[in-house]
Design a binder for these strands. Structure first.
Length: 615
DNA sequence: AGTTCTTTGGAT
DNA sequence: ATCCAAAGAACT
């Protein structure tokens, strides 16, 4: 009987939908048409030869079965399936009668089949029958086509398989990157939270403004006042990376950006300064993603701690305001807007409106560009801190003791890094990142001491072991020639034409290729780091003798060398620079450094291998 | 408009 | 691997 001959493929979990067992690979047959796996033991007819196994077509694609489900079938669906099979098997019915019976079974999907239906039928007659919905036999209403080539009305199909999984990364086509989705997004289907390509080349833990150097797409950087449709688009330009969370940061490193989106009622926005509330304190377990009720105290941990670190260090924190912040007159009407960098001057805890403790942060705007809501010609000047009445009831008050990293430079009349920004702990965005994501595992596996050597002493531009190393004030290392080439043709004065707010001439800021530090002065008198050069030479000798000792040596020395602050400026992959000039062999004082040297050192071998991995 | 549900990326 | 997040889409 038809009921026994129901044939079902393996579901997305690999289990046979008929016997519920997950068959081992050797008992699985894969359809050469639709590439669906089937449990061989549950098939009523199996291929007989090896050749026919390779060219096997599943019951759906070969026409042996009328229907198959493409998703997991639950008990009720199985019953429906059986009933439909029964109708199909009834020889006393015409095709039209069968269609009507199927319709009835599915519960009045097509309301009435009066004159309307006849009209439809007459149209159908001249169309290829294969276009018809296999359930109602009409031209599909909002057609759905399965991978095996069958057409259904959306409603019929939904009735059949239950809630329909609609795969619409199409939404991503509206994003500037034209349908880019991550692997994970494609797998999961829905694109409501799928990330788009990140256009800027700053690493995800980059602090401060995003400048033209890190905006290869437009070469203008992220300008104050720039707006995006939503958080995902904002993310693509690096202003604020998390697409849900309000705070971007790492508890042991600092917070790079925050979003003012009206999520916490304690927030208080005064434009040039605002009081921000930490995250947490809410029970978001299960499906309570929108729970605004606080049920426990916030603490200085996780993102709240990250903000406190930024306060302690005086880092610039990028701020975006969302239209969802309805209580602020500084929030945009639509979308998300970048409002420049602020500094967190103090933080504390207080009992919030809902009766639980919340973390509080005083943000003050210190950006070189004027805020989007002002008509000012210039950016912020140092300003006195506002009086905060709630500080009287505050606990756990924290204030910065040290000088802030981001501060006003009286000479240059602008805000800048007075201390070097913290070294990035993450790979920069851009081609390199996409590349390393794809081959990430291979790279990690292939990483050996030689590669680490290279990493420690690689030029951040050409990625090879440095020739004539120079160390910038911000402690990044480059070949002298690479750095010169990177700024070839750049002048010290520039005209600002469009995009920015003010149209004035100003000193050209020449940013370090690896961070936002202005190194224009340093570039005037490039000095080779002799110490570093000696270590490289020493290492190369050691590495020829024995790999491991050389590696240890390398670690020690690299930390010593750039230890003018609390970080080492290396270990951060530089962005690819097309301007990098490889013609530096001529002034290479280290014979073994030449990649083409006939007596190739292990070091050279290492960097060749690394390059291969990265391409 | 309000509510429910799905989904991702990043921290840890 | 697990959990979290000031989102966004789909429903009612």
């Amino acid at each position: 009987m038809a009921h026994d001959s129901i044939q079902l493929p393996c579901g997305s979990d690999g289990a046979c939908m008929r016997c519920k067992v997950t068959p081992p690979a050797e008992q699985t047959l894969t359809c050469s048409t639709c590439v669906t796996p089937w449990h061989a033991a549950c098939l009523t007819s199996k291929p007989e030869t090896l050749a026919s196994t390779l060219q096997w077509h599943c019951p759906d694609c070969s026409g042996d079965a009328l229907h198959s489900a493409t998703d997991a079938v639950d008990g009720s669906s199985s019953e429906l399936f059986a009933a439909i099979k029964k109708i199909e098997a009834d020889e006393s019915l015409t095709e039209k009668e069968k269609a009507r019976k199927r319709q009835e079974l599915l519960g009045g999907i097509v309301e009435e089949d009066g004159g309307k239906g006849k009209e439809k039928s007459s149209v159908l007659d001249v169309l290829d029958e294969s276009l018809n919905c296999s359930f109602c036999m009409h031209l599909p209403d909002r057609p759905v086509t399965t991978p095996c080539g069958h057409n259904f009305c959306l409603k019929c199909f939904q009735k059949w398989i239950g809630p329909l999984k609609v795969y619409h990364f199409i939404h991503n086509q509206d994003r500037p990157d034209k349908a880019f989705t991550t692997e994970r997004a494609q797998k999961a289907g829905k694109a409501n939270a799928a990330s788009g390509k990140i256009f800027v080349t700053v690493p995800p833990d980059h602090f401060g403004p995003i400048t033209a150097e890190n905006d290869p797409a437009r070469n203008q950087g992220v300008l104050v006042g720039e707006c995006w449709e939503d958080r995902l688009e904002c993310r693509q330009w690096g202003a604020h990376l998390p697409h849900v969370a309000g705070i971007a940061g790492q508890s042991n490193y600092g917070a790079q950006s925050v979003a003012l989106s009206g999520g916490y009622e304690d927030d208080e926005d005064h434009g040039e300064w605002f009081l921000y509330t930490g995250s947490g304190g809410r029970d978001l377990s299960g499906n309570k993603r929108t729970n605004k009720e606080q049920s426990f105290d916030q603490k200085f941990e996780k993102m709240n701690e990250a903000l406190r670190v930024s306060c302690k260090k005086g880092y610039p924190v990028r701020v975006v305001r969302s239209h969802k912040e309805k209580r602020s007159s500084y929030a945009p009407e639509k979308g998300v807007r970048y409002d420049g960098v602020y500094r967190i001057e103090k933080c504390w805890r207080k009992v919030g409106i809902q009766g639980f403790k919340v973390c509080r942060y005083l943000f003050v705007r210190y950006d070189n560009e004027p805020a989007p809501w002002t008509s000012d010609e210039h950016g912020d000047r140092p300003r006195p801190l506002p009086t905060i009445p709630e500080l009287k009831q505050a606990t756990d008050i924290f204030e910065r003791k040290e000088n802030p990293s981001w501060d006003y430079d009286e000479e240059g009349s602008r805000w800048k890094w007075k201390k070097a920004p913290p070294p990035s702990k993450k790979p920069a965005n851009g081609a390199d990142l996409e590349e390393s994501k794809r081959t990430g595992k291979a790279i990690r596996k292939a990483r050996n001491t030689k590669e680490r050597l290279l990493k420690e002493f690689g030029c951040l531009i050409c990625r090879q072991v440095m020739n004539l190393p120079v160390t910038t004030p911000c402690a990044h290392n480059f070949c002298k020639s690479c750095l010169e080439a990177a700024f070839a043709g750049k002048t010290a004065i520039r005209e600002r034409n469009k995009g920015g707010r003010a149209l004035r001439t100003q000193k050209n800021v020449l940013n370090c290729p690896s961070c936002p530090t202005d190194i224009s002065d340093f570039l005037q008198h490039l000095q080779v780091n002799r110490e570093l050069m000696d270590v490289i030479e020493l290492l190369k000798q050691k590495s020829d003798e024995n790999e491991e000792p050389a590696d240890e040596l390398n670690e020690e020395h690299s930390n010593d060398l750039v230890g003018n602050t609390d970080y080492s400026g290396d270990g951060e992959p530089g962005t690819k620079n097309e301007n990098a000039d490889p013609k530096d062999d001529s002034h290479n004082p280290l014979p073994d450094c030449k990649p083409k040297s006939s007596k190739r050192s292990k070091l050279d071998t290492a960097h060749v291998a690394a390059d291969d991995d990265l391409q």
